[in-house]
Design a protein around this nucleic acid. Structure first.
Lengths: 221, 221, 221, 221
DNA sequence: CATGAATGAGGTTTCATTCAT
DNA sequence: GATGAATGAAACCTCATTCAT
C-alpha cells in the first residue's frame, strides 16, 4: 500500500503530556544534530536524549524523515515569526534589511543546526514535502516595495537574493563568526549590490553580453 | 569510530592498471552520487559500478572517507586546472570574471555531484584533511589586482565572494538552470556589487552603523 | 523506487562455499519452521542455526519473504522430482495413485513444515510469485488419461482433487498419523469417489438440482 | 513468553454496554483480518476500528491470543447455530447434505476470514484451548444415521470428511468462487464418494493392499 | 594483486502490553 | 471503567570492512 514511508505526523498530541513529549523530541533532535552532526542523529539517540522510549518517538513521527521534516518546520516557523515583521515595513530597503537581519540571526544562533538542516532540505524525500518557496516569496514581495531597483524577473532575483544570503551566512557560520552586525553589513552589501547591478544590466544591455565588471566610473570616485 | 580511520591513500598506484582502477572507482563514485544521491553511495555499489571487486577498492582507499576525499580532490583539481588560468590575466575584474566563469561551469556541469560534494566538505572528518582555503586564497590573490576596489579585510572578502558564488550557483543548480551566460551575469552582479559596497562601507563609515541600503543617488539615475 | 520489498534472489552463489551457505540457510529455515513454528522463524534465528552471520543471509535473500519463497520452491522441487514420475505411467488410475503417494509422502515426512509452508503460500505477498497451478496442471494432465471418468470441467476437477488431497493429508499430519498406506487408501477413496460422482452428476443431471447423496442402488450390494 | 499468557476472558461482561464493547471488538477483529490479513491484525488497530481505547480491549481480553480465541469461538458458534439443525434430520444422507450446506455457506460468506481463522486454529498456543473435535463429533454422530455406509473407524472417517470439506471449500474460497450450489455438489461428490469407497475397502479387503482405483465395472458404463 | 563471501554492529521500525490519569 | 500515552523487546535489514582463496 504505502510504498514511500509516511511523512505526515502520525497523531497530533492532544494531552498536555504528549505535547511535552513532542517538544522534547524535537529539541533533542536539534541538539544532537548540532553536537554530533548527521552521524549521531539517529532515532534511538534522539529518544534517549529526549528522555522517552523509542516507541514514543514513533507514536508521533511515523519515520525518521518525518521527524526531520518536523524539525525543519519548527525552524522555519521560528524564522518566519521573526521575518514576517518585515512586511510591516513599507520602505523597500528597510524591509529588506530587516529580513536580512532575521536571516543572519537565525543562521548564526544555531549555526551548525541551520547548516545541517539546509542540507536535509536538499534530500529528495523531503523536498517534495517542503514549501520551498516561502522564503523566496517573501523576498519577492519585498522587492516590489518602493526604493528598490526594479528587476526584470523578480522571482528569479528573489531566489538569487535568498541563495546569496544563505551562502554568505552559512559560510560565516562555518567560520564560527559571531559578530552579527559585521556580517549583516556584508550581506547587505551583496544583496543591494546585486539588486542594483542586476537592474542596471537588465535596463541597459538587452541581449548583449553581460558586462558588469568594474568599469571606469562605476568604481566610486 | 574505534580510532580515527585512515584517510590517506593506502598506496599510490604506480602501475598503469592500478591508475585505471583508481580512476574507475572515482568516476563510479561520482556517478552514484549524482544519480542516487548519498543514499546510493556505498562502497559495495561503487566497486560494482567500477567493475572491480570490493576488495580492490580497499586496496586503494583505506576507508570510505578516503574515497570521498579523493573524489573531492579530483573535483578540486579539475576546477583548478580551469581556474588557475585566471592568474594569467593581469586585469582584476577580467580575472575575477574568468574565475566566476570557471565556478559556474564546474557547478552546473555536474550540479548534483557538486552540491553533494560541497556537503561532504562540511563533515568534520573530512574538513581536517582539506585545503579549505585554496579557493579563497585564489580569490584573495585576485582581489589585489588593479581595477578592483580595495578591501579592508581581503581574506574575509575573498571568503565572502567564494560563499556568495557557491550559494548562487548551487541555487541555480537546484533549479536546474542551464543558461550559463545568464547565470554568469547574475553572479558577477553579486560579486562586483558586494566588492564595491563593502569597500565603500569600509572607507566611509568606520565604526558607524553599516548603511549600505539603497540611498538616494546611489540608485542609478 | 522499490515499493514492495524484493523477492528475487539477490545473487546466485557461484563458489562452492556459498552454495553451501545457501543450503544451510534453507535447511535452517525449514528446521526452525518445523520445531518452533512461525513464532521462531525469524531471520536472526535462521542465520544463527545455519551457523552464518545475519549478513550472509541477506547476501542471498534480499528479504525474509525471499527466503520463505526459496524454501517454498525447494519443497516444490523436491515434490516434483517425486511426482513427475507419474507422467510416465500411462494408465490413469495408476498414475493418479502414484501422484497421491507422492503427496502423502511429502506431507507426512515433514508434516509441520508442509503445513506451515502451505499457509505461507496463501500470503498475498508470496502468491504473486508462485506457480500456483503446477500441482493442478499435473493433475489436469493425468485426468485426461484413459480409465478415469471424463470430467465436464477438467481444470476445476483438478483443482478440487488437489484441494481435497491437501485437506486430507494436512489433517492427518495434524493428528500426527504415520501410517502412510492407510492414509493413502483414504485419499484414494476420496479422489476416485469424487471423480466418479462428479462425472456422473455432470452426465446425468444437467441443470437439475445436484443429487449425489446415497441412493438406493448406489451403495454397493 | 515469560509464563504462558492468559487466554480466558478477563471478565464476563454483565452490563449491556460491556457486551456491546466486546461485540465491537470481535467484529473489528474479524473485519481487519478479512481486509488486511494477518499483517493488519494488531490490537491497536482492532481497538481503533472498534472505536474504543486500547485499554478497553485489555479489559475484556487479557491478551491478543485471547481475542483471537474469542473470535474463533464466535465463528464456531455462528456455524453451529446453522449446523446443529442437521441433527433434527433423521435421514443420514440428508443430514449430511445439510451439514455440508452449512459448511459451504460459512466458508464462502467470509472466505478470507474463515481461511485465516483456520490457520490460527493450527497455532499451538490456541490449539490447546480449542474444542477441536466439535465439528468432527457432529459428523461422527451423523455418520451413524441410517442410509450411510458403515465405517470401520467412524471417528477417523468423520475427521476425514471434515478435512475434505474444509480443503475443498477453502480452495473454492481462494479462487473466489461464488456459486454455492455448484460447490455444494462437488463437496457432496467427494464426501459421499469417500464414504462409500472407504466402507467398501474396509469391508472387502482387510489387510490387503488398499485397492480403490477405478476398476472395470466401477467406471460408469 | 584481485576477488567476493562473510561478518556483525548498529540503524529503523513495530506492536503487545502497562498504568497513570 | 475507560482512556491513550508510554514502553521496550525484538524484528528486519544495511553496509563498511576483513580475509581466505
Amino acid at each position: 500500500m504505502s510504498s514511500t514511508p509516511p511523512l505526515l505526523p502520525r497523531k497530533s498530541p492532544r494531552q498536555r503530556r504528549s505535547q511535552l513529549t513532542v517538544a522534547s523530541l524535537l529539541e533533542a533532535a536539534a541538539q544532537l544534530l548540532e553536537t554530533q552532526g548527521l552521524e549521531g542523529f539517529n532515532t534511538n539517540a534522539v529518544a534517549e536524549r529526549a528522555g522517552v522510549g523509542i516507541g514514543s518517538l514513533y507514536q508521533y513521527f511515523p519515520s525518521k524523515d518525518a521527524l526531520t521534516l518536523a524539525l525543519l518546520e519548527r525552524e522555519a516557523a521560528r524564522f518566519e515569526a521573526d521575518a514576517l515583521a518585515a512586511l510591516e515595513v513599507p520602505d523597500g530597503p528597510a524591509a529588506l534589511r530587516h529580513l536580512i537581519r532575521a536571516s543572519v540571526r537565525q543562521q548564526l544562533e544555531r549555526a551548525e543546526l541551520a547548516r545541517l538542516l539546509d542540507e536535509q532540505e536538499g534530500r529528495p524525500e523531503l523536498r517534495a514535502h517542503l514549501d520551498k518557496g516561502r522564503f523566496g516569496q517573501l523576498i519577492n514581495t519585498l522587492l516590489q516595495r518602493p526604493g528598490l531597483p526594479p528587476q526584470a524577473d523578480a522571482a528569479l532575483a528573489a531566489a538569487d537574493v535568498a541563495a546569496l544570503i544563505r551562502g554568505l551566512v552559512d559560510g560565516a557560520g562555518e567560520r564560527r563568526e559571531t559578530d552579527l552586525a559585521h556580517l549583516q553589513c556584508r550581506v547587505e552589501a551583496a544583496v543591494f549590490g546585486y539588486l542594483e547591478r542586476a537592474a542596471a544590466a537588465a535596463r541597459g544591455l538587452q541581449g548583449r553580453e553581460c558586462e558588469s565588471g568594474m568599469r571606469a566610473g562605476a568604481a566610486p570616485a
